[in-house]
Design a protein around this nucleic acid. Structure first.
Length: 118
RNA sequence: AUCGCAAGUCGUUCUAUCGCUGCCUUUCUGAUUUAUAGGAAGGGGGAGGAAAGUCCGGGCAACACAGAGCAUCCCACUUCCUAACAGGAAGGAUUCAUAGCAAUAUGAAGACAGCAAGUGCCACAGAAAAUUACAGCUUUGCAGAAAUGUUUAGUGAUGGUGAAAAUGUGAGGUAAGGGCUCACAGAGAUAGUUGGUAACAAUUAUCUCGGGUAAACCUUGGGAGUUGAAAGACCAAAUAAACCGAAGCUUUAAGAGUUGCUCGCUCAAUUUCGGAGGGUAGGUUGCUUGAGUUCGUUGGCGACAGCGAACCUAGAUAAAUGAUAGAAGCUCUGAAAAGAGUACAGAACCCGGCUUACAGACUUGCUUGUUAU
RNA sequence: UGUCCGAUGGUGUAAUUGGCAACACGUCUGUUUUUGGUACAGAAGAGUUUAGGUUCGAGACCUAAUCGGACAA
């Protein structure tokens, strides 16, 4: 059940552009969340994770943060999927802090963020 | 044994749970001639020595190309290696350091063609920074009793400033001086001989004495077509102002294209009809079997090359190669218990180099000091 | 992925062909004023992003690195 396949990732330049233009957004440190509801698709939720190059120079640091966020989302996404009815939710997570975080902290923050989203 | 330097090699491992990616096998569903799409189970793969910087050189691909000259950019001791290189190997000369009275030895370094082709520049100081004479010295004419004044010419030997001063010492010679002449020494050019594949070295003859700067313009010799996989090829849905052919009409010799420019070369434009199928978002491909890796052997001082055997070793695309927990190894602190640390860093078409970053471990060589014999 | 620029006092800019790093604003001190501002007078504050090299001598020339920015798609 706790999978994270390719279909659950949002890809394509057009889809992401429309998400940024039409989606609603709020801040929940250390994330900036942009979300949009669309008619139901094959999967219940699609997500984009972004760590800006401006904040982390090294590719290794960016990769590690993205992996941590993805792991935290994978473990806790059930909460989100249960609530959505006949709809697909698109998410864009932008990391805005300048310091590295440990995996436990990232997981806690993601749970907090998902509750705020609901 | 320890510390330091140089060169080279390596650059963490295991277990459990959950997860990602593409490959193979089996199976299920839809469809069924096949191809193929989606799901499940199992198997075995999944970042580097620098993947980095993008500083060089190639492969590969598309486009361009009758040809010539100029411009622009790059390279620069020699021979070899190589697909190629601004890379590497070996050698030569130069400079620097150390040792030495010296000869020389050892080590290191570098864009090591040319300023003796031309032009430019050389602050301050100094007479002068290079066809240039300020003072001084000597001298011609004139004036004067003389000192001297003025004038003609010579002089880089005197001035001690500067980063750099007209090759240095001695003798002759001269009005005074000067390679003006001679001896010795130094630096170089040309030609020859010997050794070396060559750079070059030694030597002989003749000639010269021309300050530095080419990382100043430049000259000489050699080389470079342009653009980069977001190149390019293919697929399907909706559709052009671009391309090709035919016909007709009007006007001009200028315009357009061809590499940055010149010569040269090629081409009229517009309207109507017909043909052909191009770009855009997406997907597939390009994509990993290659100047490949490992081992052995032969040749070579060496870089490297030949031969034989074995092996297949990431292929993502808003971008996989992970997360959590525990243990081991290594290093440091510590009497111990224990604690802390475990680097630099993430493929994006692929190779060969260079440069930069790096915890720690190992090997070889050298130096210093200590201990033992 | 590729191409091209820049870095100078606290800030913004100069520096002619390589020859004593300049200017404005700001800061500080003093005078004027009851006080502050204004005005006037004066001072401090850099060795040119870093490391090498060429040169008698580099802000400038060459090489490498660091940081910042622009452009193409």
């Amino acid at each position: 059940m706790k999978t994270f396949t390719k279909a659950e990732r949002l890809s394509g330049k057009v889809l992401i552009d429309t998400l940024i233009q039409k989606g609603k957004s709020f801040n929940c440190f250390p994330f900036r969340v942009v979300w949009l509801e669309i008619p139901e698709n094959k999967v219940k939720a699609q997500i984009v994770i972004s760590v800006p190059k401006r904040l982390f120079k090294k590719a290794t640091d960016r990769n590690r943060l993205k992996r941590l966020i993805r792991e935290g989302y994978r473990k806790n996404k059930d909460v989100l999927i249960e609530k959505t009815e006949n709809k697909t939710i698109q998410l864009l997570l932008i990391y805005t802090s300048k310091t590295m975080m440990k995996s436990k902290e990232v997981e806690d923050k993601i749970i907090l963020m998902l509750q705020q989203l609901l």
